[in-house]
Design a protein around this nucleic acid. Structure first.
Lengths: 226, 226
DNA sequence: CTTTCTTTGTGTCAAATTAACACAAACAAA
DNA sequence: TTTGTTTGTGTTAATTTGACACAAAGAAAG
């Protein structure tokens, strides 16, 4: 145990960038702090790591106690270490981001309705700590990840239309995507993953409303934006 | 300061995956531990974070004191949090990876020559802690990063031939790459970045030995392996 | 000082992929 | 029954890739 007494350990926290998609807008959940530092400023939800806790568990704890949700898509983002990032002292933040479907979680219904709020990613207010930097990195990560991994489905209902998916992609990437080519790309990817065969020529599939196969969710696919 | 006394903080360490390329082999630097736990086992070099230290500084400290090198390409990889990853107690490891040119650093010359050794990535021995997992993740990251960002140059001399670069890529990615198409891709990328214009048709450039432009080093470029 | 390798960049072309848009089917509104 | 809206398919030109013949320059051998 010698190695441990020799060092004083910085505090370790997890900060969460929770993305939600609703009415053609990508938003992030922010928390209005009710104590110093940064009292009355908007910040990302976060908490300190307990001795026995994994990051996963801590994320669940934050989501559950502060936001009343759980069982969401979660991914580690980056660890922020600037020595002055927290005025209270040294705090290392292991940032994660989550993707949720806002419909499933009534965020505003809790007792802290005024303290928790969705902000469109285009209209993020000034944030406390270095949370703007964390948010920016999370958005970039989401934008690049969505192009090769079908992570977007996490933001929609179990069932969704192709155009809903299309709008989601346009919204997250901030570019126009040809509706028809997009649709074909997704259908092709789904077909390959389900059958192992590449889809050739015309296939008269016309799924009005559909649910992406679980296999698709687990597999890489390349979506080159046109 | 209330928030801080309320929590006991896990120890925070940085572990380093140091890659070097020499004689057509990609290798990793390992350290033979001379104390428990995992005494006499090979592990990644690492150290505990001091209260005021940034990750950058800690990485430099590890590289300098244990390996006698510094000023290398460095990137944060991932933070490992498994509660049982260190038998001494809770230790969170913020893994980084470094790319160095072994020629520039006489690793084996130090007093701890027997304790520090290069291992080809194809012949990594059993490692202590969860270091195998960290190593694997680092290699994957290097393999994917090299395809869209010119990090490979960091592993070579200031000046290098196209075929050296070609061998490096084949070695890291573990696939055969058409020498001629590869060469064209790199020259095209360099041309675009230097001039802003896409290279059309034949350009009788024939750089025997060349040094990549700094701009190229700073810019993204896409290299699709053929 | 030829001849023969070896190394390394260019040219070319077929195949695959993309981007752009015409068109068609399904459905709703007037 | 028109007219408009939504949504998938077909088609095609432009671009990109992958594979390989070829050419230029230098080294090695006689």
């Amino acid at each position: 145990m010698k190695a441990f007494s020799a060092y004083k350990n910085p505090a370790l926290a997890v900060d969460l960038v929770v993305f939600g998609y609703h009415e053609k807008t990508l938003s992030v959940l922010l928390l209005n702090r009710n104590e110093e530092p940064f009292k009355d400023r908007w910040t990302l939800p976060g908490a300190f790591l307990q001795m026995e806790e994994s990051f996963q568990q801590l994320c669940s704890r934050i989501l559950q106690t502060k936001l009343g949700m759980d069982n969401v898509y979660l991914e580690q983002l980056y660890t922020f270490d600037a020595p002055d990032r927290d005025p209270r002292g040294r705090v290392i933040a292991v940032a994660h981001y989550a993707l949720i479907n806002p419909k499933k979680f009534a965020v505003a219904a809790g007792k802290m309705a005024n303290d928790v709020q969705w902000f469109p990613v285009k209209k993020i207010p000034a944030l406390g700590f270095d949370h703007k930097e964390i948010f920016t990195k999370a958005l970039q990560r989401l934008q690049s990840k969505i192009q090769y991994f079908p992570v977007g489905f996490q933001l929609l209902d179990e069932m969704f239309t192709m155009s809903e998916l299309h709008e989601l992609y346009e919204c997250i990437l901030g570019v126009e995507i040809d509706r028809r080519n997009f649709s074909r790309k997704i259908l092709d990817a789904e077909y390959v993953i389900n059958t192992g065969i590449k889809r050739e020529g015309s296939q008269n599939r016309r799924p009005e409303l559909f649910k992406f196969n679980k296999k698709l969710k687990q597999n890489n696919f390349q979506l080159n934006i046109s």
